[in-house]
Design a protein around this nucleic acid. Structure first.
Lengths: 197, 197
DNA sequence: TGCACATAAGTGAACATTCATTTATGATTG
DNA sequence: CAATCATAAATGAATGTTCACTTATGTGCA
């Protein structure tokens, strides 16, 4: 039996991420992708069932890497302040080191594929997050609010800052914007202040 | 001279919003749109230069309505607490009353058209926001932080809550989620706490 | 060791559709 | 009439996917 070339799979993934981010979902065509990856169109269909399957599997791949990175050095039993800081750093690192993957995931979240994509979230990740929040509340380090309120305040500001950073521009009036550690930690402090009892 | 049918323009807009939100940008085709609006494909090209122009003009339209709604009853000279509350209510109302337009705008923001779309933001809106923040800082009602930090904390959580609401689901573990006034006002209070000196 | 066989990887050309856009022509109204 | 709206029909290019086929590689048997 002929063995599969592992390089092809990676090349296909990389080119697909780049193509989707640069040209949007309508910019991704199987034939263009094949040409970019130096592969026959038919070869793509050996790896992926069809176009939707390709996109969803790319999402699963990125999602997995993202959760893996986010959990690095994170202890669900740690103090709220420490745990949140680790997560901010990890999440920011992932987005800054893999901008294409991160952007791609956001595109999927506003696409019709979203519903199918959410189901790919890893239960272990969700459980770790829940345990962390639950412990922090029990120890009186975190106010008792609905999880959605918590998440909105705890992480949405970080992702907004990263969005500003990615475009190199903040608010329309600002000339240019680049997220540095100082700014990030300042924002984290304010968020922590909001969530502390 | 023959007069243009104003109904056609509105129908085209509405059907385009619906089509893009439901099927994504690759789901929007000029021929499908024409059929949905009960119009010939060529007619679309009377109203819009090409496909990109159509999307950008839709964005300009939605953006205008959004800023208009957001400024309703908003006084840039009002107190920070009051002004922020008015904006939260206005922004939430717009998103809830025009979910298609709101979702469409987010799709554009993660598409390659983003750069061209930002330029359509209205200067008057930006100026009102700046004046509001500046005044609040001067009166000591708001901490002195970069505008991007302010915006991230002041509004990102609201939009995250609306995103949860739209999908009817909050965090993956939650069975279902619906944003009510109480939850929104609770979140607003926490955000205000974070931004107060 | 050598050699056929089985099997999966990989291919280029071709499929019917659909795409965005244009052209030639008619309809409507100032 | 003259100007603009509106259309049906048609354009070539590009789409996702499949097909018949070749190539590579591990296995079983001599």
């Amino acid at each position: 039996m002929r063995t599969r070339d592992p390089k092809k799979e990676k090349t296909l993934r990389d080119k697909a991420f780049a193509m989707i981010v640069k040209e949007g979902f309508d910019g991704l065509s199987m034939q263009k992708l094949a040409k970019a990856a130096g592969v026959s169109p038919a070869t793509i269909y050996i790896y992926y069932k069809d176009r939707d399957d390709l996109i969803l599997r790319l999402y699963a791949y990125a999602s997995h890497r993202m959760t893996e990175h986010t959990l690095q050095g994170f202890d669900p039993a740690s103090s709220f302040k420490d745990g949140l800081r680790v997560q901010w750093i990890n999440r920011a690192e992932y987005c800054l080191q893999h901008p294409l993957e991160a952007h791609f995931m956001e595109q999927v979240r506003f696409s019709p594929l979203y519903d199918r994509a959410v189901k790919l979230m890893e239960p272990g990740f969700i459980e770790a997050m829940r345990a962390f929040v639950k412990g922090a509340i029990k120890r009186g380090e975190l106010i008792r609010v609905p999880v959605e309120v918590y998440w909105s305040i705890a992480f949405a500001p970080l992702y907004q800052l990263l969005k500003f950073h990615k475009h190199g521009k903040g608010m329309p009036a600002t000339e240019s914007f680049a997220l540095d550690e100082k700014t990030m930690m300042l924002t984290l402090e304010l968020v922590t202040k909001a969530l502390k009892p």
